[in-house]
Design a protein around this nucleic acid. Structure first.
Lengths: 147, 147
DNA sequence: CGATAATAGACAGAATGTCTGTCTAATGTC
DNA sequence: GACATTAGACAGACATTCTGTCTATTATCG
């Protein structure tokens, strides 16, 4: 018997995206913990994925991650407390601070990228790698046209 | 010049999923507000999309949405406060409460489904509807094999 | 140059959505 | 009928965002 609620109609696209993203995220961050980065949380990726090798200002990071300076500042502080970044005054701008990765932070960023790629392969097994390539291309195209 | 951070490599699959989902969600809920449901928030969809026509118990809703009873109870209370659902003791189980949609709640649930579908079409214009059909199929298949 | 505007970030406070843990009342099982 | 299970309430916590306000600094323009 069909369920009597709304869901039978059709899953929403957003629901599908969310479900898959949520599963991937859970696995990636569980593995991050296993490989020695237990205090890296999903929100931190906004910083880790946007920070420049030579360091970045909080404002720039915030803009790239499309969030407020305050929120990014909070993430920077929390990563600093856990030893993933250091913050120091920007020599070229007295108002600004520069956030830079420590060795540990760099390692965490690299692990995050690596585990994400592995997870993509693992999920790819479920539908076949060729289909996964197609899926990725469609998502990339759509994301590009949204940006 | 390439950015000197980590992002150049390749967007993660999770990042793509999240980006697209986030855009969709923002538009859908902005429109929900416009069509008269300004107090429906994304979290409420866990309840609205799982509730049965004859009413559901909080525990069942929680299980279907894969969250704790407490969290679902909070959502039910907040929807009740805004007039989207009513809660009454379950006649068949003295411990339980039954959550039921009001007319307003039913209308909100239907609007949510409708707007989501419209948004899918709108996003489909960006890559072509045929491609969107392919994208949806790939996501559905992957989601099924994950579940 | 100096006045004004804009920017970087800090600090305080709030809202949202989720979780654990503990408790009571009711139900189900053997 | 004793014991375990379940439904939900209540209290408290935490993460992740947001606004709003403030100071210090820098940039602009007349």
């Amino acid at each position: 018997m069909e369920p009597t609620n709304i869901t039978w109609r059709r899953r929403t696209l957003g629901g599908l995206l969310r479900l898959i993203e949520e599963r991937m995220r859970a696995r990636v961050y569980a593995q991050m913990a296993e490989v020695g980065f237990p205090d890296i949380r999903p929100a931190h990726s906004s910083l880790l994925r946007n920070i420049a090798e030579e360091g970045s200002r909080v404002s720039d990071l915030a803009q790239r991650a499309q969030m407020t300076k305050q929120s990014m500042g909070y993430l920077a502080d929390s990563l600093e407390a856990a030893g993933y970044v250091v913050q120091a005054p920007d020599p070229t701008d007295g108002r600004a601070k520069r956030v830079r990765l420590t060795d540990k932070g760099r390692a965490a960023g690299e692990a995050l990228v690596k585990l994400s790629a592995e997870m993509e392969t693992e999920f790819g097994e479920l539908i076949g790698q060729a289909q996964m390539v197609r899926l990725r291309r469609l998502l990339e195209t759509l994301a590009d046209r949204l940006a």
